[in-house]
Design a protein around this nucleic acid. Structure first.
Length: 357
DNA sequence: AACTACGTCAACCGCATGGCC
DNA sequence: TGGCCATGCGGTTGACGTAGT
């Protein structure tokens, strides 16, 4: 890319940095430390603004950076947690993640949000067309997904879901748990508890739900919807609205302006797939005191519900990394969820005839 | 092979903040 | 006290690579 805006005046160079420029910048830092950025230009060392120099150093040349290394599950967890705590204070969040810059965190979060938005915007089309159904994720076994529900009726659900998402409806009562390919991820497989179908939990999301998805995102979605968060969402600039979650412990679930549902330390991203509970250990740099994790998973006495999400024995995440065994804990991050799990969400039967197009 | 959608990342921009004079 | 300047921060944009169609 050629430098933009280079023509008039003292030609401030913009755009990608060259190795030579990096070397000059390195030299400057060696001599003066990471400061006096403006002097780089004033001395004629580089035709870059001080801001640009600082940014280059902070985001790229600093020696302690983790470059070319994707966010680990642990880092993802920290980002999610701290974002819930601090909001979009990327610089602050980055201080908890050694080797990561605010830009890294920001980009990571942005990507994640876009991903979620895409899922929510169009959860179905890829599963709808015959070509799509066979071409993508062909190795996932399919699980009979869609076949049963790809009826004419589902079209209206799809439209309803699309409309809901267009309205920034964050609760996704329409995101179903009818059938997934996640049969192998039962709770009981690793938690010594018998696997339960979703509709075996108290408060099954909707009648006839046959999901084997063992974590209660669907409930969260439904509960949020029931609590009327859709109406509050649009104006929820600051307000965090407590909601009646099934597994609500000491921490009231909240809906943030970004459409994320926080349930204590569990975060449910639009009811689609990001949820975690009870981190087993804190990252070294996680300095903020947190509530004791125990009560996240305390089942209510009157409930027979398994408090855990599926205990992943060993999962390969999106990044091709083997996730740590989290036996007995519920620790499901976005990256833990195989694409097919998300892609295979199908819309439920109409919860009520009131949903119209 | 061409096109499209999407993810990732680097870099810029505008505004805020804080120190100095 | 107010202006200036350097620095910090968050939002946004655009280039590029990759995978799917």
């Amino acid at each position: 890319m050629q430098p933009r805006g280079g023509g008039d005046r003292a030609a401030v160079r913009k755009g990608p940095w060259t190795a030579e420029e990096d070397e000059v910048l390195h030299q400057h830092v060696r001599e003066h430390g990471p400061r006096e950025w403006s002097s780089i230009r004033s001395k004629g060392l580089l035709p870059r603004t001080g801001k640009s120099c600082r940014l280059r150093w902070v985001n790229k040349l600093r020696p302690d950076l983790k470059t070319g290394c994707k966010f680990s599950s642990e880092e993802e967890r920290v980002v999610i947690d701290l974002q819930a705590q601090f909001g979009n204070k990327w610089a602050r969040i980055a201080t908890y993640l050694p080797g990561r810059t605010d830009n890294d965190v920001k980009n990571f979060w942005s990507t994640r949000q876009k991903r979620l938005a895409r899922i929510l915007r169009a959860p179905l089309p890829r599963r709808r067309s015959a070509s799509a159904a066979t071409a993508k994720h062909s190795g996932n076994g399919g699980g009979g997904v869609g076949a049963a529900s790809s009826s004419a009726a589902s079209n209206s659900h799809e439209a309803a879901a699309a409309r809901a998402s267009e309205d920034q409806y964050p609760c996704f009562g329409l995101i179903p748990f009818q059938q997934t390919t996640m049969h192998q991820h039962h709770v009981g497989e690793s938690s010594q508890e018998p696997p339960l179908a979703a509709n075996q939990y108290a408060g099954a999301p909707f009648p006839g739900a046959e999901s084997v998805l063992p974590f209660p995102l669907g409930f969260a979605a439904m509960d949020v919807a029931a609590a009327g968060c859709s109406s509050s969402y649009g104006a929820a600039s600051e307000v965090h609205q407590p909601l009646p979650f099934l597994y609500a412990a000491d921490h009231a679930p909240m809906v943030d302006p970004g459409g994320l549902v926080f349930h204590g330390n569990a975060l449910i991203d639009g009811g689609v797939g990001v949820a975690y509970l009870e981190p087993k250990s804190e990252p070294e740099h996680y300095l903020e005191p947190k509530p004791e994790p125990e009560h996240y998973l305390e089942p209510k006495p009157e409930q027979q519900t398994p408090p855990r999400f599926f205990g992943l024995e060993e999962e390969v995440d999106d990044y091709g990394l083997v996730a740590p065994v989290r036996r007995g804990t519920a620790d499901v991050l976005f990256g833990d969820l195989p694409p097919e799990m998300i892609d295979f969400f199908e819309l439920p039967p109409p919860p009520s005839p009131s949903i119209r197009l």
